[in-house]
């Protein structure tokens, strides 16, 4: 009986956090540097979409997942939507064009965070491992690209900002990998929710 009230408070918190991120001063502050834009604002928007999923009752989550076309379709949607926002020109557009900024605030929670969380809970250990390894290798690749690129990829950001993002991405990938490996060796699944070895249903 306590559950709905608590999730109601969490929903309120998530909504407030989202609104806070949309406020122009907060937006401009986070978008002033490439690092905070890519590694703070955008991940937070994705995370809010994931939080939203956890606040839904299990039945709604299942219906939503089926609405997308199943866990694999969810993962595919999240992959494509996040790939789009990795285009340097999408990042540039999100600063200068209101429509692109709007698309970012809508698509990162709804088309990346939400389907990812929906897919995640129905994936077994192997599926989750697949997602982790792809996420980590993609970060290393992108980081290396930014460090090694002979030119500035975003017209709106300084080249040393780009270099910093590159190293941060590589560092972050290393940390995620270590954390994931640690979780594996402890014998616990990479998430707190119990993951079956193989999916049964």
């Amino acid at each position: 009986m306590k559950q709905p009230r608590r999730s109601g408070r969490h929903a309120l918190g998530a909504g407030a956090a989202y609104l806070l991120l949309t406020l122009p001063p907060v937006r401009h502050w986070l978008e002033a540097s490439m690092a905070s834009h890519m590694l703070v604002q955008m991940p937070l928007l994705v995370a809010l979409g994931m939080v939203a999923v956890r606040l839904l009752p299990a039945g709604r989550r299942r219906r939503l997942r089926n609405g997308f076309g199943g866990p694999l379709a969810c993962l595919t949607a999240a992959t494509f939507a996040s790939a789009y926002w990795m285009l340097p020109r999408a990042l540039d557009a999100a600063i200068g064009e209101p429509l692109a900024e709007f698309a970012k605030f809508v698509s990162l929670p709804l088309l990346v965070g939400l389907p990812l969380a929906l897919a995640w809970e129905s994936f077994g250990l192997i599926g989750r491992g697949f997602v982790w390894t792809n996420l980590i290798s993609m970060q290393v690749f992108l980081g290396w690209l930014y460090v090694a690129a002979p030119l500035r990829v975003c017209n709106n950001y300084l080249v040393d900002d780009q270099l910093r993002v590159g190293w941060l991405l590589i560092t972050l990938a290393g940390l995620l990998f270590a954390g994931w490996l640690g979780a594996l060796f402890r014998g616990a699944p990479a998430s707190r929710t119990e993951a079956p070895m193989y999916k049964t249903a």
Partner: peptide, 13 residues
Amino acid sequence: PLLSIALLGTATL
């Protein structure tokens, strides 16, 4: 659905 999402995603990119 998987196919249409992949197609739509590719088209967007």
